[in-house]
């Protein structure tokens, strides 16, 4: 029903724009990763030198593994907080369901920086938590290890990603037909068996989507370590950032970015396949 002219008019501008301002930049990133820096200048000398460096210097692998550990920690904690909340709201909250739902949404709209900053003021050595602990006489001296540790990074990012994890989980729980739960009870399964055998398997796609979200977003985060992490929790994106800044080795930075990009895309591809497999209806 749409004419050729119509189709051309709607397709051409976004195609050109995306090609120019998205495809070309991403392509430049790939190109840089094969170039080199000599005497403070980027030379268009193609080769795999950067990738070789990444594999030979154990520092990079170490930071990457730390990043993945932190990402796994954030994912796990967000699920641990988000799943019971979603389960409670979907199956037991009754009429308060909608109000509670909105209450989970609100923090989602609050600025990343604002929330990160709040944690900084809470965890710092003259922070609110230390003040509180001294006030109730649990500690006498300020405790300094709250802030500037991988723990602080995990805490802050968990706080930020829990609502993100919650949303797909809650949606998948809400989509479970209630008569399946009734059927399970009817066949003799109590709440625990019903949860393990019916609800949990049917919520797996939502769980997977939420987990992927938290993991991938943490993987590429460089702000949380700067804000609350300190040197002991430098993540892979921080290395990239410093290579593009003071360390000035764009090609090496680009090669790490390409690695992050490939890791992200293969993770997303993997979970997409699993989600398809687990989507029953």
């Amino acid at each position: 029903m749409y004419s050729r002219a119509y189709k051309t008019i709607v397709s051409l501008p976004p195609l050109v724009w995306i090609g120019m301002f998205l495809l070309l930049p991403y392509a430049l990133m790939f190109a840089h990763s094969f170039w080199l820096v000599r005497n403070g200048m980027i030379v268009h000398h193609w080769g795999l030198r950067n990738y070789a460096t990444l594999f030979q210097n154990p520092l990079y692998a170490e930071v990457l593994f730390r990043t993945m550990r932190i990402a796994a920690g954030v994912t796990l904690l967000s699920l641990l907080l988000g799943y019971p909340l979603a389960y409670y709201m979907s199956f037991h909250a009754g009429a308060r369901k909608d109000l509670l739902y909105q209450l989970v949404i609100v923090p989602l709209w609050v600025s990343y920086l604002v929330r990160g900053y709040a944690w900084k003021t809470i965890l710092g050595s003259d922070g609110v938590l230390n003040g509180f602990l001294q006030y109730i006489h649990i500690t006498k001296e300020p405790v300094s290890f709250f802030l500037y540790s991988p723990f602080a990074v995990i805490l802050m990012l968990t706080h930020i990603y829990t609502p993100f994890v919650f949303l797909p989980l809650y949606a998948s729980l809400e989509h479970i037909p209630r008569n399946l739960v009734e059927a399970s009870h009817d066949l003799g399964a109590g709440w625990r068996a019903t949860f393990l055998r019916v609800i949990l398997p049917l919520s797996l796609p939502g769980l997977l989507a939420g987990a992927t979200f938290a993991f991938v977003l943490t993987l590429g985060d460089f702000l949380a370590p700067l804000l609350v992490g300190g040197p002991s929790s430098i993540m892979i994106a921080n290395i990239v950032q410093s290579l593009f800044g003071t360390a000035y080795d764009w090609p090496l930075g680009a090669s790490i970015s390409v690695c992050i990009l490939l890791l992200t895309i293969s993770l997303l591809f993997l979970t997409e396949q699993l989600e398809k497999k687990w989507a029953y209806q």
């Binding site: 009734e182 059927a183 066949l187 055998r197 019916v198 398997p201 049917l202 687990w278």
Partner: peptide
Amino acid sequence: VNTVFQNYALFPHLSVRENVSYGLQVS
């Protein structure tokens, strides 16, 4: 007491045999 539901309420993630075995397994 067992029920045959109006829309059957068969478990979509289980096979026919697993559906039928469900009540026996949980008990």
